[in-house]
């Protein structure tokens, strides 16, 4: 009973939220060139990095901390997978007898 009420309220909130997002999505439409100041800064200063590919210049030079954090995320995930792999293989031999 309680769960049912919760679900209805949640659905109503979700519908309102979707409508709001669509209204903002209309305004985000691309009539003009998007003139964000950050992009302007990158377009003016790309020559310092020496790269022609702007995505590369932003990714590895202006936003080096971002890329480094992303690589740390990937590294931690891979380390977790290696540890889990060793953990899974080990109880497979003993787990049949024990539990």
């Amino acid at each position: 009973m309680k769960e049912n009420v919760f679900k209805r309220v949640f659905t109503a909130l979700l519908v309102v939220f979707i409508c709001l997002m669509f209204l903002t999505g209309m305004n985000l439409g691309h009539e003009d060139k998007s003139d964000s100041p950050l992009t302007e800064f990158y377009l003016e200063n790309y020559e310092e990095t020496g790269a022609i590919n702007l995505v590369e210049a932003i990714l590895f030079d202006f936003r080096g901390y971002d890329t480094f954090g992303e690589l740390l995320v990937l590294y931690i995930a891979i380390a977790g997978i290696i540890i889990l792999g060793k953990e899974i293989i080990k109880p497979k031999d003993e787990g049949g007898e024990g539990s």
């Binding site: 998007s34 964000s36 950050l38 992009t39 990158y42 702007l54 995505v55 932003i58 990714l59 936003r63 971002d66 890329t67 992303e70 995320v73 990937l74």
Partner: peptide
């Protein structure tokens, strides 16, 4: 095209 969202989404894909 604006290159900034491409960069963010490259990060997002890897995460």
């Amino acid at each position: 095209v604006d290159p900034l969202p491409h960069t963010f989404m490259l990060t997002g894909i890897v995460v």
